[in-house]
Design a protein around this nucleic acid. Sequence first.
DNA 1: ATATCTGCAAATGGTTTGCGGAGGA
DNA 2: TCCTCCGCAAACCATTTGCAGATAT
Lengths: 132, 132
Amino acid sequence: MAKASRMTKQKRLILEILRGTRVHPTADWVYQQARQVIPDISLGTVYRNLRLLCEAGEIMELSFGSTFSRFDGNPLNHYHFVCRQCGRIYDLDLPLREELEEEVRRAGYEVEHHRLEFYGRCPECARGAGNP
Amino acid sequence: MAKASRMTKQKRLILEILRGTRVHPTADWVYQQARQVIPDISLGTVYRNLRLLCEAGEIMELSFGSTFSRFDGNPLNHYHFVCRQCGRIYDLDLPLREELEEEVRRAGYEVEHHRLEFYGRCPECARGAGNP
DNA sequence: ATATCTGCAAATGGTTTGCGGAGGA
DNA sequence: TCCTCCGCAAACCATTTGCAGATAT
């Protein structure tokens, strides 16, 4: 059976914040934004709702090398670029490569999804500096 | 200039442990193994050396969704499969798809490397159970 | 000789959780 | 109504760090 899940104003706000940005924010960034609308929202509530929204498939949690998670308001599989200089994370406009999964299935695995990320320097940082 | 870096018996042991396993262990697993050889090695030393070995390019740090890192004694780029049932991580024997990076370069990014992971159920878990 | 490394233990910091009260369905 | 969610604050736990002594080079 489906899980019970209420739409509270906190959850709705968090979802709006995530859908309205392209920055792949951290939980704390979402918290700072949310406080501007609901000043006494708590960080615990932000974490709880980020978790709930992930489980509901409304958003995506991204964990790169860093010690903290980032979140993406677009739950559809897509690829990312991580700039090692400025730390920004970009959505890439590449078509999904489903055929990669086929190769893995041939090896006997049940593949549900895959994740592809590129690391390097973003156009903006490359323009600014010759050497990192 | 290159950083100074000593080869201590602790660092050598940690590198041997990582090269001698296929399990993509956590820092604590490495620590437990290391204690069987150097009983008074400390967890802090394990973390410090894992960091140093990463920076030296001898090993790789892997961060999946979990709250803790895993480490891979093979620093050459290769792809992984993560079983959502047993949690094991497998090295995949797929050829590198360097051409994926080309597409991203065409969009203006300086790509240094990429990372590709597959998620699902491993052959062993798939054999054991019909429904997760 | 000496700068780096070690063991120890405490600190850090992102994330989770227990609680009693509030509020969505 | 009633069950889930909230705010608060403490707990959690992987990882980092300060220190004084040890050790690789």
